[in-house]
Structure formats: structure tokens, C-alpha cells
């Protein structure tokens, strides 16, 4: 939902980043306002995932220039946990398995650190269990997963549901979902999409990073951005995603070449 005067949430300007000696992001510009849903598309290696990890503060990436502002604050100077606590959420493409660490305890600690940040009471074990049960329902996840170790032995779909569950618990302001749709069957995809729709509010924003149109059939984006070689090549509305689905990415090469020549 686009409203011209709504609050500016995330503002990325001329962002350059590299991993080891390899430049990946080469000048990304992106502005996200409250109430908006953005889709970032592009082929493998175009820099989509890097963009999401840089926003979340992954230590493997070095920012070489540019800025990222979140609600006016300098996001890049914040630690990963500070970003999460202030409301930036990254749904991982490949959520890591953490043997031995109880999923329930992890969720509780994470939820409470967010709550403290926004001035809410910490939840004790019982209160938290009530909350988590309610949110579990939303992602249609089996409560048995709470007693297991974080993501350990979860199937691909279960891991993604666990990501959406975390999003539902942390109630972030900006959610970036990195290929949350990949590897999901159609039912799981609906669950994820419904979760995203329910959590999208007038004062929050969502960024969907995806390869495919099918998630966008469920969740209609306000903006579609196409990334290539570390930059946003083109921005349009939902029609652009449909066009991409039909024509593929071949035009990207021509457009990319043109852009370089210019």
C-alpha cells in the first residue's frame, strides 16, 4: 500500500560492499516507506542475498562506501543484535542448525530482548508459552518443534516456518525475507504468504527477495526491483515481475550493458 507521505523506514544510498576481496554490491539505492511491500528479484549472484545480509550486519561483508538509515539512525554502525532489537528482521535463505540449543529457549530470549528494547515487559516462561502457541497457529507449525534444537533436523519447509514464527514473535518494523519461498511446496508457500500478509501493517514494511513470481501471486508487491551485478537495474510495479516471468532475465544483460556504457 503506497502512501506518499508515510514514514521513511529504510533508506539505502549508494551502498558498496565486498566479501574478502570480491566486490558484490556496487552502488545500491533503495527507499522503503511504512506500509510498503517490495520485491527484489534477480538471478543467482546478482547480490540480492548479500544486500539482505549486509542489512542484518553479517560479519563476512565489508562496507566500502554508502549508507543505510533505519528510521533515521545509522544502521551500519549498529551490532547485529541491536538492529534486530530495533526492528530489522532477516528471514534467512538457509537458516543454520544449532544443535543443543533449545528452540523454545532461543525464541524466548530473542523475543524478550526485542520487548525490552521497545519498553515492554519481559515474558516469563508461562506467558511466553501462551504467546508462542498463539503464533504457532499462524504458521501452522507443530508445537513439537519447540522442544527440539534450533532448526536441527528440520525439513526445508519447517525451517522456513520457524523463520516466519520468529518474525511473528519479534514483530519487526522492516522484514527482509531472503528466498523464503524457495524449496516450499504450495501449502507451505501459502502458510508463509499468509504469515507475511497478516504481519504487514500500515507502520511496517516487507522486502521479499525472490527468484520467482509464485510468492508474488500470493503477496502483491507495491514495488518490484531487479538486481544485477550488485545494483538495482530497474524498478517497477507488479507488472514488472510478471514480465520477468514471461521473458526471463535475458534482457537484463542488454540493459546492464547499456547502463555500463552510459
Amino acid at each position: 500500500m503506497i502512501k506518499q507521505d508515510s514514514d521513511l523506514l529504510l533508506e539505502i544510498s549508494d551502498l558498496h560492499a565486498r566479501v574478502e576481496d570480491q566486490p558484490i554490491l556496487k552502488g545500491v539505492n533503495l527507499t522503503i516507506r511504512a506500509g510498503e511491500i517490495h520485491a527484489v528479484m534477480g538471478r543467482n549472484g546478482s547480490g540480492k542475498s548479500t544486500l539482505s545480509k549486509v542489512i542484518a550486519g553479517h560479519p563476512a561483508y565489508t562496507i566500502t562506501s554508502g549508507t543505510v538509515r533505519f528510521e533515521g539512525k545509522d544502521l551500519l554502525s549498529m551490532e547485529p543484535e541491536e538492529r534486530a532489537r530495533s526492528g530489522v528482521f532477516l528471514g534467512f535463505q538457509y537458516p543454520v542448525e544449532i544443535p543443543g540449543v533449545s528452540n523454545l529457549e532461543f525464541l524466548r530470549v530473542a523475543t524478550n530482548s526485542r520487548r525490552v528494547e521497545i519498553g515492554e515487559e519481559e515474558l516469563d516462561t508461562f506467558e511466553f508459552e501462551d504467546l508462542v502457541k498463539e503464533r504457532l497457529h499462524m504458521v501452522q507449525m507443530n508445537p513439537a518443534f519447540l522442544d527440539r534444537s534450533v532448526n536441527e533436523g528440520f525439513s526445508g519447509g519447517e525451517k522456513k516456518r520457524n523463520e516466519i514464527l520468529q518474525m511473528a514473535l519479534l514483530e519487526p518494523t522492516v522484514s527482509i525475507l531472503d528466498e523464503t519461498d524457495s524449496g516450499l511446496d504450495i501449502d507451505a508457500l501459502r502458510v508463509v504468504a499468509n504469515g507475511v500478509k497478516k504481519l504487514a501493517k500500515a507502520n511496517t514494511a516487507t522486502v521479499l527477495i525472490t527468484h520467482y513470481q509464485r510468492l508474488l501471486n500470493e503477496v502483491t508487491p507495491d514495488f518490484v526491483h531487479v538486481m544485477d551485478a550488485g545494483r538495482i537495474l530497474r524498478t517497477g510495479n507488479k507488472e514488472l515481475a510478471i514480465e520477468l516471468e514471461q521473458t526471463g532475465y535475458d534482457w537484463v544483460d542488454k540493459a546492464s550493458k547499456k547502463k555500463v556504457e552510459n
Binding site: 553479517h58 532489537r85 528494547e117
Partner: peptide, 30 residues
């Protein structure tokens, strides 16, 4: 301790000390 695991916990708002402690607990648990 695995850097990726640590980052995952931190990206959910858990501070480095607490994340370390959670991971270490998990390591000892079994």
C-alpha cells in the same frame, strides 16, 4: 564457536555474551 550460529542468534536480537552462553550451553547439553 561457529560464527554462523553466533550471527544467527545475534540477528534475532540476542547479544554476543548471551548468544555465546546459549551456544556453549547447547554444546554441553548432550
Amino acid at each position: 564457536l561457529q560464527a554462523e550460529e553466533l550471527f544467527y542468534l545475534r540477528s534475532r536480537g540476542i547479544g554476543p555474551n548471551q548468544a555465546t552462553s546459549l551456544l556453549f550451553r547447547g554444546y554441553c547439553q548432550d
